[in-house]
Design a protein around this nucleic acid. Structure first.
Length: 892
RNA sequence: GCCGGAGUGGCGGAAUUGGUAGACGCGCCGGAUUCAAAAUCCGGUGGCCUUACGGCCGUAUGGGUUCGAUUCCCAUCUCCGGUACCA
């Protein structure tokens, strides 16, 4: 071993020398104790100086792209939930690298967003400053965990060099006719003079100040994601996502088959109005049971059909509905409200005249905004009919429509030519019938709506378009003029008109049309936070390209992302939006892949423990004994203020035992675990290992403050195997491995390799723990037995592994070493313990040779007293022998 | 309500083409070491019965299939996540 090269990197050894010279008696203690803080910084700088994690995208090694959902750099810093996902990907990145892959594992910042702008409003600090400061904190935290990111590829969505391409993609969407302007209602707060995001509105009032919020239509950019609904649905087949995640996307897209049917308005009831009301229904088979119609309050025909005597009540109803937010409309669902318009429509199948109502249980945004109501076979219609005394007709047998609507299967009745048919056939037949007469047609509908793509905010990507004053035309900027930079502003306060603060910057807003040179205004909306995160995974592959968002050759090689890990909160929107943009880029030939993320895994939430005390209405304070009482309110005590009496959590001042409750971590519950604190106490490797050992990656798991000691102890045990300690085996030796040890080693390599590959990190760690326990039983540990263990540990606890690898006399870095191989021959043992049952109950075990046949097994079993006792004087009717598994006697 | 997921020791969890339930860790108990404690090392640890050998019960609950069920089927309960008048 080359000591000199080793010493260049191991200042620990220097430290120990120093100790040895000045305090000879301390040398062995310093040598043997595990002090993560002394080695972690050292190896972090080693990786940085050596550019260990730099990715060569042109490498000949097979590519592996492992990606985290990049964070919004909030002021709160990294939390243990981030650490969980990022550790998982870091393990995979390091593992795949050792397995011979060229690994791309980048990190960046989703840095546009509301909090920085709100902070700017309060303090006048530019969001860029806040963002930079937060990014610095995040970066330091990520580095302190030893994550092996290629920082040369760092992306920040707020950099003009990045959002230049976000704007470019918008221009492409516009060219493809996928971006359009519409009047859409937004949450307008007159008191604050601004538009609020949904999450800023609580119970119809603003989160800040509690001012009333109303819905006001404003000019907005929309993206036609609905045009891609079918492909977004179908291409789910191409990707390896967890089934529940695909299901959520399917539900969100919400494809349903049915028919569109035209109902003519009865001219006699409307002073001769000639009009059709088109409805969408998934149950055209129930057409004969349609006894009334309902228009959504916003439906344009409402005005036309309403009779003079009903006009006043209809208008009043419509105004009421407009005031309600979507939320209120759905929450107040107990009573089905509505008013009669005075008009009638004609049911096309039987020419019956049915009344037309207006009701807000029909949504303008779905289908055609109008329905045919079939109260006999739709529960909502049934409730409405009951409330307003409308006719209910049974057209499908099998239920009791006096009690409730019968939505299930059955045979058609009261339906002329459909009567007698089952539902499925009736659907087919009626659609044909309608199509022959041009009264309707088969149709498909989606729940998915077009994507509201603008915000009235400052801190977002500006739209690269102008509005020409003379004719109001929207004119896109030429590509060469990108990026259109976000200007500096004096004030972050909203303009007061509902427009973004950009509207107040005259010299920026007033411009010229790039086509004609005539006066024009810039778009003052900005893009939503989703925009930057919709394509960042492409940019990581080719972050400095100034010709295109990504070099198509590199895209072909590196996409789709092999493994994408992040929180379940992005299961629908982020993943759907990114898939949509990806498909658009595919369609214009910018990229070659249909889907961005081949495999997605959601890490589970990590829960914290809150400590509650209870208070009665009289102000009496109670402890955990009041947990089940209903007349008390619980209040959390911050975890740092809990006073511990042994293992009893106590109120800081009162003599009250607190009630521990496991729940989502949040500042207000005082139960947040800060990763920095854990690192300080136990080191980064212990934190990483603990989060992985806690349970399956995808499961929701409670954080146990005592649990970290277990994995810390495990690392310390490995450390002392190498460094030596009086209670550990007597140091590392050069001996060969005996057969038992060799088997244990190869079995461990197999288990750790397979579990790591499948992201079963908890059981991989357990296997390494078991192996360490085995090693502790030895008198001396062969170097050949411990070196592979250190290699397997490296993805999980990289700092400790690097240090041990060096101390074992190997060249740094362990990361450069190929993954250890296992030998199949050493996985099987000569003999095994066979479980023996009598009548399915375990009665004993016998040791038999690996290749023993049934006769040998039975003979061995009958030698066993515990087994034989149950077989005596009984007739053996049947013997079930599954080699390697079980031997079962069935006796009579 | 609907969709998806999950219920296993005091706790986190392990084991499913059906085959020794409780790996590994925490906690707890005992021992070694120590003047003592911490740390460390070794051993034990699902419940009940038994002096012991051993037996019985046990994977949310109740049924079923099977030589054999944590695993498959039916019904029920509870919890978590998503979604909510989507015609």
């Amino acid at each position: 071993m080359e000591r000199s090269s080793l010493l260049r990197y191991t200042f620990c050894v220097e430290t120990i020398r120093f100790y040895h010279q000045s305090h000879p008696s301390l040398a062995s203690a310093a040598m043997s104790e595990f002090h993560p803080e002394e080695i972690e910084k050292k190896w972090q700088s080693y990786w940085e100086e050596n550019q260990t994690f730099r990715t060569d995208t042109d490498s000949d090694r097979p590519p592996f792209y492992v990606l985290d959902m990049f964070p919004y750099p909030s002021g709160a810093g990294l939390h243990v939930g981030h650490v969980e996902g990022y550790t998982a990907t870091d393990i995979m990145a390091r593992f795949k690298r050792a397995r011979g892959f060229e690994v791309l594992h980048p990190m960046g910042w989703d840095a546009f967003g509301l909090p920085a702008e709100q902070y700017a409003l309060k303090t006048g600090t530019h969001p860029r400053e806040t963002t930079e400061k937060n990014i610095a904190t995040f970066t330091e935290q990520l580095k302190s965990l030893g994550f092996g990111y290629d920082w040369n590829r760092e992306i920040n969505t707020t950099d003009a060099d990045y959002y230049r391409w976000t704007q470019w993609i918008f221009l492409k969407l516009y060219e493809q006719d996928l971006a359009y302007i519409a009047e859409v209602p937004v949450n307008w707060c007159p008191a604050l003079g601004t538009v609020l995001a949904n999450e800023e509105v609580i119970d119809g009032r603003s989160e800040r100040g509690g001012h009333p919020v109303v819905r006001k239509p404003m000019r907005q950019w929309m993206l036609k994601i609905t045009e891609y609904a079918d492909r977004l649905l179908q291409d789910l087949e191409l990707i390896d996502w967890p089934e529940h995640l695909k299901e959520m996307q399917r539900n969100w897209i919400g494809r349903s088959r049915g028919a569109e049917v035209d109902f003519a308005v009865d001219p006699e009831s409307t002073d001769g109005l000639e009009a059709n009301i088109r409805v969408f229904t998934t149950r055209p088979d129930t057409l004969f049971g349609a006894t009334y119609m309902v228009l959504a309050p916003e439906h344009p025909l409402v005005d036309d059909v309403t009779s003079e005597e009903k006009r006043q009540s209809v208008e009043r109803y419509r105004d009421e509905a407009a005031k309600k937010s979507d939320l209120e409309r759905t929450e107040l669902q107990k009573e089905k409200s509505g008013v009669f318009t005075g008009a009638y429509a004609v049911n096309p199948v039987n020419k019956q005249k049915i009344p037309i109502w207006v009701a807000d249980y029909v949504l303008y945004g779905y289908g055609t905004g109008a329905i045919m109501a079939v109260p006999g076979h739709d529960q909502r219609d049934w409730e409405f009919a009951r409330a307003h005394d409308l006719e209910i007709v049974e057209v499908i047998s099998g239920g009791d429509i006096e009690e409730e609507a019968h939505e299930g299967d059955g045979e058609l009745v009261n339906s002329e030519f459909l009567s007698g048919l089952p539902v499925d056939e009736a659907k087919e037949k009626i659609i044909d019938w309608l199509e022959e007469r041009s009264l309707g047609k088969g149709a498909i509908n989606y729940k998915l709506r077009d994507w509201l793509f603008s915000r009235q905010r400052y801190w977002g990507e500006p739209f690269p378009v102008v509005h020409r004053k003379e004719d109001g035309e929207v004119v896109p900027l030429p590509e060469e003029e990108l990026p259109l930079k976000l200007p500096e502003v004096e004030e972050y306060a909203p303009s007061g008109t509902g427009e973004s603060p950009l509207a107040t910057i005259e010299e920026w807003v007033e411009t010229k049309c790039p086509e004609t040179g005539e006066p024009a205004r810039r778009e003052t909306n900005t893009m939503p936070q989703w925009a930057g995160s919709c394509w960042y995974y492409l940019r990581f592959v080719d972050p400095d390209n100034d010709e295109a968002p990504i070099d198509p050759k590199l895209e072909q090689k590196w996409l789709p992302v092999d493994l994408y890990v992040g929180g379940a909160e992005h299961a629908v929107l982020h993943l759907l939006y990114a898939r949509f943009w990806h498909k658009v880029l595919y369609d214009i030939g910018a990229i070659s892949t249909k889907e961005p993320f081949q495999r997605v895994v959601n890490q589970g939430m990590i829960l914290g423990t809150s400590y509650l005390y209870y208070e009665t209405e009289e102000g009496e304070i109670l402890g955990e004994e009041a947990a089940d009482r209903r007349d008390v309110t619980g209040y959390p005590v911050h975890v740092d203020e809990v006073r511990w009496e042994g293992d009893r959590p106590m109120h800081p001042t009162a003599d009250i035992e607190l009630d521990p409750v496991v729940e989502k971590m949040s500042k207000s519950r005082g139960n947040v675990v800060n990763p920095d604190d854990v690192i300080e106490e136990y080191g980064a490797d212990s934190l990483r290992l603990y989060e992985m050992f806690l349970g399956p990656l995808e499961a929701t798991k409670p954080w146990d403050p005592r649990g970290v000691t277990g994995v810390h102890r495990f690392l310390s045990r490995i450390w002392r195997l190498v460094a030596g300690d009086e209670d550990a085996p007597a140091g590392v030796g050069e001996g060969e491995l005996d057969d038992d040890l060799k088997r244990a080693l190869h079995q461990t390599i197999q288990k750790v390799t397979e579990d790591t590959e499948e992201l079963r990190f908890n059981t991989a760690i357990a296997a390494m723990m078991e192996y360490v326990n085995t090693l502790y039983k030895l008198d001396e540990v062969p170097r050949l037995a411990i070196s592979p263990l250190v290699q397997m540990l490296a993805p999980y606890a990289p700092h400790t592994a690097e240090e041990l690898w060096a101390r074992l006399g190997h060249e740094p870095s362990v990361i450069e070493e190929p993954w250890p191989q296992y030998d199949e021959d050493w996985l099987v043992e000569d003999s095994y313990e066979l479980a023996v049952q009598v009548m399915g109950k375990l009665r004993g075990t016998v040791e038999i040779p690996q290749d023993a046949d049934e006769d040998t097994a039975v003979a061995a079993a009958r030698q066993n007293e515990d087994v034989e006792r149950y077989l005596e004087e009984k007739e053996i009717r049947r013997v079930i022998f599954v080699p390697g598994r079980i031997l079962n006697f069935v006796v009579g």
